[in-house]
Write a protein that binds this DNA or RNA. Structure first.
Lengths: 208, 208, 208, 208
DNA sequence: TATGAATGAGGCTTCATTCAT
DNA sequence: GATGAATGAAGCCTCATTCAT
């Protein structure tokens, strides 16, 4: 029992230590980008020594891989596309508000992700498979249903679902370009979401 | 005359050499990102020696600055938002097709731009001022006109113009994530543009 | 206690390592001059790798600054002008012998110092303040006293003290120019000191 | 005749061009030191292009060699030790004033010389042979004469002549260390020369 | 002969990774 | 397991020298 507990305790500690380092890596990577992030700064941010990182991760690159493939992004950027419940979709303004909010908050991570996907296409496949596709699939299912019951025009839902996602991602990018003094950064997110939802939904609705 | 010609010739050669190096820099930066690009690779790509770069640019960073601020992007990514003529806007599908085409072709540059804007907010200001804002302004003028003459709902055109741009940028980003075997990369651009234009324009149109 | 000891041990090692590198820097700088000294040679001389230098000093220049401003020269060239005790002054031949000996041994450092003072006047101020002026002040105090009690002519002791120092420095310079086969390098230092002391002291003494 | 004149003209032009470049080299070397001087700056200072330098000198180092061995320094620093006439020596204050004046004005060159002699002992031999020794010899001859006719104590004139030179050189060095706001730089050269001459000459004189 | 663009060797510096404690 | 000093590969940049014009 004791040793079991110790084991569990050790595993828990190990897991917690990995998390601690990954969080630090996420912060530094998203601020500096992968290449300009230093293990020294990650260690300092995590409150551990540089050597300790290598007790938990094989390399700096392994940190990035764990970050993009792992649970660590789940709680921030990844939620951007993560399966909303069908119910959530039903309220497009609320859904958009939620996603825009998360996205603006984590636009650095989106940039990091785009940049690293570019250098390592596998990241794109991984991210597509784990995050983007499930989200798109759910969206598509929902749109298909509404097309079938006649509350939507018979659009190509494969495209339409991507258009919805693209709208959110694009707003994040424009927000990033405009900066903290730009228009989007200072427009109430709720109003933004309402306007955009309106544009999208009315556009997708059947004409009378 | 002779010396004048010589002068002109030298200036022309200098300009052409700068262009040659900037083109190489654009290639390598967009492929590797700024930090991971090496001056050695840029030189090799440009077909000059490493030292030669420094006869034309003060530093590697100066290459980036010249690239983002200069004419070098004008012919590719910058066109993404560069003032389309009012006439061009009139045909939303054609406009979107054009921009999506350019964007898919240069998605690496969009990523580069986003990443470097994040590290150097001045780049964002510069890009906003020189490229994004003029494009948005033109779009807004056009939308305002159509709102006034009743062919569009009275939307917030400040938001709506950004939504249109965001849609394009977002599609580029999603395309980038999905990769060359993804859905968007293999969907006919013309059809994509038609679909998206439909979503946007019908959504923006007055309900009967 | 243990951790305290460890701390002390680490600090001691750090200090010792800095010293080790500074000593190497002094050797190489004085042999090659600052600009022509390479960090590679300093590292090799110190018996560490090149990167290690930068764990202790911010830059090659910082090595020079630490060298000129720090304790590292105290034990060699700096003693040249460092406050001798009044007693020591009393025996001018002994004082001169001591200083000439030190100076001949470290003429490379004098040259280094002069050269770098020329490029960085702050070094001159620093060296004047920390080393030269205190030495001159002591010398002047002593000369003033002897003027007052009549064992010296009423010379301008501000000038006279500099003359004494200049004599030593000049001998070192001439020795440097003549080289190891030159006259001064092969003249017994004690005899040289006696002769020069005679020239100076009789010259400074009252005429009967 | 014509061709001869042309030849003479060409030679004259060549000589004049060499001189022009050497002067520039002297300026830059004495300001920056040999290693930190760049051929670019020398060319600019000389008002020629970088390539032109290599039409007259084999290398940057050759510039230094020509400078130290050649006529180019003759007109400034070299005069420091260059054979004064016996008559000139007769007035020690005047001689010292002259030399101190030249020396203070050209202390950068003295520093340059010392530094480069250190790296290239041949320079020291060359300088000793061409400049220092002749000067010392003349001084010694003069001192010997005065010893013989009883107006000087029977000092070792080999040492005494070096002491006189050392005094001048040392004053220059101290002046260099103290900088332009230091004591020596702001003391009237004539008074300084008088004081020092007094110290030296009375010291060298026979006691009554 | 004058030019100055091109070259490339070599220097300083950074930083991911290792390893002895 | 934690530490952080040591390492050395690799990158950016400088600058003496060459050479085609």
């Amino acid at each position: 029992m004791v040793s079991t507990n110790n084991h569990k305790g050790k595993e828990a500690i190990t897991k917690q230590r990995k998390r601690q380092i990954l969080n630090a890596a996420r912060d530094v990577f998203s601020r500096k980008g992968f290449a300009e992030a230093t293990t020294a700064e990650i260690a300092q941010t995590a409150g551990v020594s540089e050597g300790t990182i290598y007790n938990y991760f094989a390399s700096k690159r392994d940190l990035l891989v764990s970050l993009i493939g792992g649970y660590a992004l789940d709680e921030s950027l990844l939620n951007l596309f993560k399966s909303p419940t069908i119910n959530a979709i039903d309220s497009l303004p609320a859904l958009l508000e939620d996603r825009i909010d998360i996205g603006f908050e984590n636009s650095d991570l989106l940039t990091l992700l785009l940049a690293e996907i570019q250098r390592t296409p596998e990241f794109g496949e991984q991210y597509s498979g784990q995050v983007l596709n499930p989200g798109l699939a759910l969206l598509k299912t929902y749109l298909d249903m509404r097309v079938k019951n006649g509350t939507l025009r018979p659009v190509d839902t494969e495209v339409a679902s991507r258009a919805v996602v693209a709208m959110v991602v694009g707003l994040i990018a424009v927000h990033q370009i405009e900066g903290k003094d730009g228009f989007l950064a200072n427009y109430p997110v709720k109003d933004l979401a309402d306007e955009v939802a309106n544009i999208l939904s009315v556009g997708l609705g059947t004409k009378k």
